[in-house]
Amino acid sequence: MREANRIVSTILDELAENVKPGVSTMLFEDICRSMCDQYGVRPAFLGYQGFPFALCCSVNEEIVHGFPSKERILNEGDIVSVDMGVVYEGFYGDSARTFAVGAVSDEAKKLMDVTRESLYKGIEKAVPGNNLYDISAAIQSYVEGFGFGIVRRFVGHGIGSHLHEKPEIPNFVPKGMPGVPLKAGMVLAIEPMVTVGSHEVEVLEDKWTAVTKDRKLSAHFEHTIAITSDGPMILSLSD
């Protein structure tokens, strides 16, 4: 799983180098597929429940599951979230990042910074003896402290020989539900999705692309981490 996630992170590094005004989001799909071939891995999302691409590419108000497109050209000031995974020797890697396209507004930069930092706040709580909702509470309290919204419709997940495994990992604390004890050996994909406005979501006519109902900006960061007796280990880091 470390190798699967290292490959994902290396691909995201390459995509980051290509985010600039004037490029189409299909460029990221092309790079992703080419690098998967180079590493001899399978794109985890391609064909998953019918998803037609190797990666999710979501711009501005798009939260997650956006389609890459030759027609979607990035403009100065946009933000673009890329979520992708691979399968390496039967195990999955999964990670996401949001990138600035050129110079972005102070609001967009703050959104990205808070979303990224909330991920690390959650990861800090991924230790044996804690409860799953300790992760959720750390993310929620940090994000809401800045007045941002937390998407509730989509959550993190366990990961291993399948892309989505139990337990689900909400980025908020559900009311009246017992959490899961965290134990060494668990591997989790933690992925806060944060909005400037309301947390309410709409899914577009393509039946995949999720957008904020108020059409305000959204950001998304994700790491796959292993819980160990020495604390959390982030697997989705490149060399």
Rank of each mutant, 00 (worst) to 15 (best):
190 I>G: 04
152 R>N: 13
191 E>A: 14
180 V>F: 08
165 E>P: 01
157 H>I: 01
186 M>F: 05
190 I>K: 01
153 R>D: 11
137 A>R: 11
193 M>A: 11
166 K>Y: 15
161 S>P: 11
161 S>W: 15
161 S>G: 11
133 Y>C: 10
171 N>W: 01
158 G>H: 02
140 Q>N: 12
159 I>P: 05
157 H>G: 09
196 V>Q: 05
172 F>N: 05
174 P>N: 00
155 V>A: 11
148 F>A: 07
186 M>N: 05
154 F>Q: 09
130 N>I: 08
185 G>W: 10
139 I>K: 07
158 G>W: 00
169 I>D: 00
152 R>I: 13
155 V>T: 14
140 Q>L: 07
171 N>L: 00
138 A>T: 15
184 A>F: 06
153 R>H: 13
199 H>C: 12
183 K>E: 15
188 L>C: 02
147 G>L: 04
199 H>V: 14
147 G>T: 05
177 M>T: 14
136 S>T: 03
154 F>N: 07
182 L>M: 07
171 N>T: 12
181 P>M: 05
198 S>L: 06
172 F>E: 05
156 G>K: 06
148 F>V: 08
160 G>C: 01
136 S>H: 03
190 I>T: 02
179 G>K: 10
193 M>Y: 09
175 K>V: 14
131 N>K: 10
146 F>H: 13
168 E>R: 14
170 P>S: 00
198 S>Y: 03
147 G>F: 06
139 I>G: 05
130 N>A: 08
142 Y>D: 06
189 A>I: 06
181 P>Q: 02
151 V>G: 09
189 A>R: 06
160 G>N: 01
164 H>M: 10
180 V>L: 10
145 G>R: 02
184 A>Y: 08
140 Q>S: 14
175 K>F: 11
133 Y>K: 06
194 V>I: 11
140 Q>C: 12
183 K>P: 10
181 P>F: 00
199 H>N: 11
183 K>L: 12
197 G>D: 03
146 F>D: 14
178 P>A: 10
185 G>V: 08
158 G>E: 03
